[in-house]
Design a protein around this nucleic acid. Structure first.
Length: 330
DNA sequence: TTCATTTGACCGCC
DNA sequence: GGCGGTCAAATGAA
């Protein structure tokens, strides 16, 4: 239906967004050239900090722009423009098992018009609406990771899961020895953040947990670090006693610890000896951003992964605390 | 008092 | 119809 008109509009917007992003990128690049090296020594934290902030802002803008553009492309009728598959493919440890996580599944189901937006879906079903509205499994883009518990350090590698998760369910899965736990972003209600994740202990290796993420974080955590203890906002990152996490813990405790600390083991990519730290946010196919209401008003795009996708060389470590070991927050 | 977890039940998809 | 995912009341902890 939204044929040519939309297409035209989309193209316009797309162009606009791309230009925006491009310019922001140029600025950032210029800045990078100006003040490349961190800070020698004495230089007070002001200039550096300011630069960092600006950089972050630029990055945000870039990501936002590209994100929109990409999403638009994804919507376009041309099947060749599918952007989604790419990121999914990069998933460190994609379950060879199933997880169709096909981008198409996001809106592929023709008959998934039953939504409830959980929170208030009203209805004017725009295409965007049903991309993320379903409360059932098929809609949300998902990808899985494997996390190994290291008896010595608890969890291997840095902890990348800086988000606050709240457990909302647990279920015994057919054929699985251990129950599967369901978590959702703590800010689901307050920020309409619909990111969820499932944690399942591996049958074969109890020390390995398969973590499946769904949806992206649209809450501020996505970009803003939950740094030091917020005085007034008890967004408990998991008030749980920090896991000394060892395999001797009860399964539940292990699962709990997983909420806060995740290390992605690239099973298939084991060649790479170092552990891959995966940002908690999924690739850029953020349905949330598309939408106009639910899981959408992303003040800041959580899609920093996009950067990786498109610019593997971009250094975003400082801008995205997501990669910081969560332990420092406690 | 507030918030997180537990757990049984419900609902939708396959 | 079975299974997986989510909801929501009850319970516990800080």
């Amino acid at each position: 239906m939204e044929g040519k008109n939309m297409l035209s509009w989309e193209q316009k917007t797309l162009l606009s967004e791309l230009i925006l992003g491009f310019e922001a990128a140029k600025k950032l690049h210029a800045r990078h050239g100006e003040a490349p090296s961190p800070s020698p020594s004495s230089s007070s934290s002001s200039p550096v900090a300011a630069a960092a902030e600006t950089n972050e802002a630029l990055v945000k803008q870039i990501l936002s722009s590209y994100e929109k553009s990409l999403l638009m492309l994804n919507w376009s009728p041309s099947p060749s423009v599918q952007l989604i598959p790419t990121p999914v493919a990069v998933v460190p440890v994609a379950n060879p098992v199933r997880i169709p996580e096909s981008p198409a599944s996001i809106n592929g189901s023709p008959r998934s018009e039953d939504f409830t937006t959980d929170g208030g879906g009203s209805s004017e079903s725009h295409r965007q609406d049903y991309i993320f509205n379903s409360k059932k499994r098929k809609m949300l883009p998902k990808w899985s990771e494997k996390v190994r518990i290291n008896p010595e350090r608890g969890l291997e590698g840095p902890q990348d899961d800086v988000y606050s998760w709240r457990k909302y369910g647990q279920k015994d899965i057919l054929g699985a020895k251990f129950p599967r736990s369901y978590y959702r972003c703590t800010h689901r209600s307050t920020r309409n953040c619909c990111a969820t994740k499932q944690v399942q202990r591996s049958d074969g290796d109890p020390a390995v947990f398969e973590v499946t993420y769904r949806g992206t974080h649209t809450c501020p955590q996505a970009i803003a670090p939950p740094p030091p203890p917020p005085p007034a906002s008890p967004e408990k990152q998991d008030t749980r006693p920090k896991p000394t996490t060892t395999t001797t813990q009860k399964p539940n405790e292990l699962l709990e610890s997983l909420k806060t600390s995740l290390t992605v083991r690239t099973d298939g990519l084991d060649d790479v000896d170092d552990v891959f730290s995966f940002p908690n946010t999924p690739p850029f196919y953020d349905y949330g951003t598309i939408s106009g209401d639910f899981c959408s008003h992303v003040e800041s795009s959580p899609m920093f992964d996009v950067v990786d996708w498109f610019n593997p060389t971009v250094e975003i470590d400082t801008a995205f605390p997501t990669f910081l070991p969560e332990s420092i927050y406690y």
